[in-house]
Nucleic acid binder design. Structure first.
Lengths: 218, 218
DNA sequence: AAATATATTTAGATAAGACTAAAAATAGGT
DNA sequence: ACCTATTTTTAGTCTTATCTAAATATATTT
């Protein structure tokens, strides 16, 4: 099928398309892939010849349907393996990424299918990111409770679970609102409270708060 | 660490050294790797520079201690994954090889260690081949009962379990002796009898027989 | 021991994926 | 609209792993 490198490019383009809701520039892709723009141009041409992306010189790239399908398959494998590592092999959620980066390229439909079943068809990976099903559908929105994030994780505030006025007034008072970027600086195992960074300010919040704020990750 | 290709060469050299109990010729390695002799020479030189093999022109190769250690690690991973696929993911023992060929190259000590533990430290893979432990020790001899082999598997007759004269006389009569090559042509699920190939002759034997013959595989 | 056959190595080429340096195209500012 | 800065592409090089064809070394036969 496709090489590891090709799959990594497709995955990166997929993530960038999602993030910026637009075509992906050569430079953005170079940064994401930690490589040089010239290397990106080379690879994009190859992907274009294989009809995995739509590319016009100086216009950036978009995934074709085939490219999107392929990218989602890789992401599906990555997240299933992350789930496996944490749930079955005692990995910590912060240890899984590098290994999953390798495992995501294993080619075997049966393996992916059976792994999914073995794990009980999980809907989210250990970071709260949605795991697409065998047809490539993300059945859950790509958001998690702030309380589900771990140290150093970040995202954008996209919703509240509790919408009582008490809670919303608290948010107002502390300048927390939809669209704000939030990063977890510290997480207390003892009481679930966390120290977060929001608009250059540090703020300590209780688990009751973090448990009622939805965050969009990536 | 090492590339997939380098690891595959080391593995092949390890198997050939075992098989012939001698240094490995370029041609033998080319055949095992399904490649050309010139490619083998190129790769051997690289492995030699990295001190993974001991090589003198026209003299064949042997694994160095480091090369042997590396080869055994790859074999360990291969066989652990095979066990995983069969025991946990409903793979048939004849479906696992290609996938294990990919999985064996995943680099993560923790992964291998945890997988081993998760599986309960199995001693043999689904084909009866021994799984080395984390220190590279094969705790069981590399032999299995003929009855444990499946269709198309082959090996060399290396021992008997039942050494009653009745049994040995039966073996004599049918020209079965230590050192002979045996290949399983058919295996009857119903009564466990099998059709084997021994010295160009076909022979049907009952499960009682195959259950008392030790075979060295590979 | 010479002649021949086989095995192995060398030399030169290719493809994938990356790089540097230079050229070309686009975007911004006035 | 022009000049400049930025982005993107091109051209040429490098490394890894492979190949073919040719050369050389070893093995075998008579």
């Amino acid at each position: 099928m496709f090489s590891f490198s090709e799959e990594n490019y497709l995955k990166a383009i997929f993530h960038l398309e999602r993030k910026y809701q637009a075509g992906v520039s050569t430079n953005a892709l170079a940064e994401e892939m930690e490589t040089k723009a010239s290397s990106v141009t080379d690879m994009i041409k190859k992907l274009s010849e294989k009809e995995l992306v739509i590319y016009k010189k100086y216009q950036g790239v978009k995934l074709s349907e085939l490219g999107k399908k392929t990218a989602i398959e890789v992401i599906r494998k990555h997240r299933l393996w992350e789930y496996f590592l944490v749930e079955k092999l005692n990995f910590n959620w912060d240890e899984v990424h590098d290994v999953a980066e390798q495992l995501e390229h294993i080619k075997s439909e049966k393996l992916t299918r059976e792994l999914d079943e073995f794990l009980g068809f999980p809907k989210r990976d250990p970071h709260g990111d949605p795991i697409p099903d065998a047809e490539g559908n993300f059945s859950v929105a790509n958001k998690v409770l702030l309380s589900e994030l771990g140290k150093t994780e970040k995202g954008i505030c996209v919703g509240v679970k509790d919408s009582s006025s008490d809670f919303l007034r608290f948010l107002d008072k502390n300048n927390i609102s939809l669209g704000k970027k939030i990063k977890v600086l510290e997480k207390e195992a003892f009481d679930g409270s966390m120290l977060i960074l929001i608009e250059e300010r540090q703020l300590r919040i209780s688990q009751l708060i973090s448990n009622n704020l939805y965050i969009k990750t990536q």
